[in-house]
């Protein structure tokens, strides 16, 4: 009974992935008529995809945006999370509560003024415009603050007695001690950036600037999408996150749970 339930759930969860891989080897009409066996069109699909989009450019753009945005987010958010936890004051607690309240403001409410601001700064269609608003992620700040509660106070005291300044304590004690927190946050942030859709869709307008996620979406939105090609593109777009997940599953789950503690 339990096994039946779990087996069905597992099958439903995994089937679309198999479908994706099989689909990449089939032609569009076969995909739409539900063919579940591998075909011979993989090579053709890849060739067609490379004719339609510049894969190298797309991957470069996606990687560049995800890497820069992850590094900046980790620095800014961990500094803030540490600061809010260690240097608590009545006022800083109030500011932090304000941040938490903003966590529930939907992106839709921000995107129009953000777009206007970016236009005024002449940043439309730049990667800077994609990265900047994601850097001060309240979610990641919150995550680091929660994690900082487990950073031993005595370690800070020991470092102060050892003559470290506050920034040295952060750099040489906090960061290395909390590296599993950083690992988890890296995964979450990287994936969020890699998979981000709405905001890049708004600010990135030319093909040379687009990310792989945007390219998949635009292939799909063609009047008559070629599903074989779309499936290949989707496989390629999903592969990096899938790999990260399998290699770093434990940190990934830890990263998700960090927000609940």
């Amino acid at each position: 009974m339990v096994y039946t339930l779990l087996s069905i759930a597992a099958f439903v969860s995994v089937f679309p992935f198999l479908w994706l891989i099989v689909g990449a080897t089939n032609i569009s009409s076969d995909i739409l008529s539900g063919k579940t066996t591998p075909g011979h069109a993989l090579f053709d699909n890849i060739v067609k995809l490379t004719q339609q989009v510049d894969l190298v450019q797309l991957f470069y753009n996606s990687t560049k945006i995800a890497v820069i945005s992850t590094i900046l987010t980790l620095i800014v958010a961990s500094l803030a999370g540490y600061g809010f936890e260690i240097f608590k004051s009545k006022f800083s607690e109030r500011v932090f509560a304000g941040l938490l309240a903003m966590l529930s403001v939907p992106f839709a409410a921000l995107m129009i003024p953000l777009f206007v601001t970016m236009a005024q700064l002449h940043l439309i269609n730049t990667h800077t415009a994609v990265i900047l608003p994601t850097v001060a992620s309240i979610f990641v700040i919150f995550y680091f603050r929660q994690a900082s509660k487990s950073f031993p106070m005595e370690l800070r005291d020991a470092a102060r007695v050892d003559g470290l300044r506050e920034w040295q304590i952060f750099l040489f004690v906090y960061m290395p001690v909390m590296r599993s927190t950083y690992a988890a946050a890296t995964i979450i942030t990287f994936m969020a950036s890699w998979n981000n859709y709405l905001w890049p869709l708004i600010v990135l307008q030319t093909n040379e600037m687009k990310t792989i996620t945007l390219a998949v979406a635009s292939l799909l939105s063609a009047y008559v999408p070629d599903y074989g090609v779309v499936m290949v593109a989707t496989t390629l777009a999903t592969l990096p996150t899938l790999l990260i997940f399998f290699i770093l599953q434990r940190q990934f789950v830890q990263g998700l749970l960090g927000s609940l503690k």
Partner: peptide, 12 residues
């Protein structure tokens, strides 16, 4: 403390 939280607060 505000120096630590400053960059994030400015961006936010």
């Amino acid at each position: 403390g505000w120096l630590f939280t400053g960059p994030a607060l400015m961006l936010l």
